[in-house]
Design a binder for these strands. Sequence first.
DNA 1: CTGAAAGCGCTTACAG
DNA 2: CTGAAAGCGCTTACAG
Lengths: 342, 342
Amino acid sequence: MEIEQTRKETGKIYNIEDIAKELGVSKTTVSRAISGKGRISKATTDRVMEFIATHDYRPNTLARGLAKSRTYNLGMLMPMECGSMDFPFFQECLRGICEMAAKYNYDIVICMVSGKDLTQLQRIVTNRKVDGLILSRAIVSSAAQKYMKEKKVPFVVIGPNSNPDIPSVDNQNRKASKELTSVMLMKGLKKLALIGGDQTYLVTESRYNGFADAYKELGKSVNDAVTIMNVNGYADAFRAVDEALEKNADGIVCMDDVICGEVLGCLREKGVRIPQDIKVASLYDNHALETSLPSVTSIRFDTNELGKKACEKLLELLGEKVETDGKVPGYQVILRESTQIL
Amino acid sequence: MEIEQTRKETGKIYNIEDIAKELGVSKTTVSRAISGKGRISKATTDRVMEFIATHDYRPNTLARGLAKSRTYNLGMLMPMECGSMDFPFFQECLRGICEMAAKYNYDIVICMVSGKDLTQLQRIVTNRKVDGLILSRAIVSSAAQKYMKEKKVPFVVIGPNSNPDIPSVDNQNRKASKELTSVMLMKGLKKLALIGGDQTYLVTESRYNGFADAYKELGKSVNDAVTIMNVNGYADAFRAVDEALEKNADGIVCMDDVICGEVLGCLREKGVRIPQDIKVASLYDNHALETSLPSVTSIRFDTNELGKKACEKLLELLGEKVETDGKVPGYQVILRESTQIL
DNA sequence: CTGAAAGCGCTTACAG
DNA sequence: CTGAAAGCGCTTACAG
């Protein structure tokens, strides 16, 4: 009560010198008590900490930053033109990142990059507005990575990464794909069609491998399946669906939610009923798949956790002592109407 | 070429003192040349600026910040639990904000707030990580606003705002609603039903007024329409649609995209065809309305521009000289299949 | 028009 | 265990 009073009356914002004076010690001592570094007696530490708590003192981040050459900000690269499909991913991810960053008293600054234009990245880096950066699979631009290496800015990548030198975190695409495919197979489906996108993407490869793993485990060959890759856009999808139907597929596994949306459109257009005539599943979930008619079986990754891990990794890179649980971001296989056996 | 060389060889990061020495002037002079403030000869300014350009010097933001008590960061409050519906709004908005901020060499830091929990806001404020804040209609919490006033942190609100003391920017809800409603009326529809949400929201009021304006302009009374407010959730929407149909409405105007989605669901469930049996329009657009079957007539606001304006306003509050064009964020009325006269 | 000096609020060798 | 002092890289009265 009285403390509140004091705060309200004075409204004063203390600095380290004020505290030193009030307590009759040196700034050095106060600084040490706060940081917990250097030799300092328990008694002094306690006195300082109590004063700080009572007066709700917060060190000036700018000043500390200048002294330690730190901004206590982390940059998150976001593609300006991410479609409505991608955005939920970023939202979730950002949530996890912010949460973890806050835990260590860091904040997230957004860096919107447009295509191959690195202007904004350069601005943020040359202005030293961040201590490190997080970028995601959606930022294809290896130019960005090259730039950051050159400038020696620590960064982590969210998504598949072939280069072991680059710290990265990723979903368990392969494992999850295998699991979903296995379920389809065990449901008694005889002929699966896998419809996937650009094969040069690593995520495509991972999911493909997972799909194949499921066959292998059952003593079958992935060649028993119809695999149609490099599908890009509705026209491609339409042809892919045609091929799947011609080859008598009784189940279609779509590599991601975008493709799946297109496939659903094609099937509707052709008057093929789901799940009566054919089962459909997606290796990446989104809200539309959940609410569409019928709802579509899919894999939901724990993107929030993925963001947290990315942030943790970056913090570690920056020399913060993070206590990580070493868990890998999980996923759920969600069986919905589109794969029901009637 | 040679400049490149120099940069690469040295890789040196200059500070203001280095420059002063190299040029045989004082730090003061260099600082003045850069800021463009204070008396200084054109000749000296040019020399300094040339050196800076050649060596790609960037003032240390942290140091400047400490001296001027500025972070050159703006905070953007984001609701943690914004649904998939809300997010496109934030994405667009954020784009505009970032773009404008970058123009004045500010950056955006994200502050995720969850419900009424102000922890993150307090953290960012007491740590002085931002010079000001932008919050949007989705942050209902007036507690947040109260906190910021108390702490004297400048902020602007995106969305309807009754309090004229609080700087805010908003879409032209009333005008846009009137325009869309007018079009419906002029298409010859005899009985419109307006289905809206919580009447305590200011945005609801604005849109309602716009709807009424259209009637007034045609010399009619809004009482000719069926208005059903405070609709919240599918069950409510179902009853509202029932009522509209009973009263022989030949057109339904939904106050926002969420309600519209529900109304579409209800109509489908009831076997009412759009636009054959009834026309449907929404006073707020989203991707689903654009791609649904049939596509739905709607109002698309220029959210990107809205974000820019919000940022401009905040920058002005912070004392930056912004050159604004005084334009108001626009909108488009997009007539799609759902209102076609067959 | 220009500069020396103090100041922004921290951290951290260095010396006791 | 503690403190005086220098330093982080800028800005800005103040004095010329």
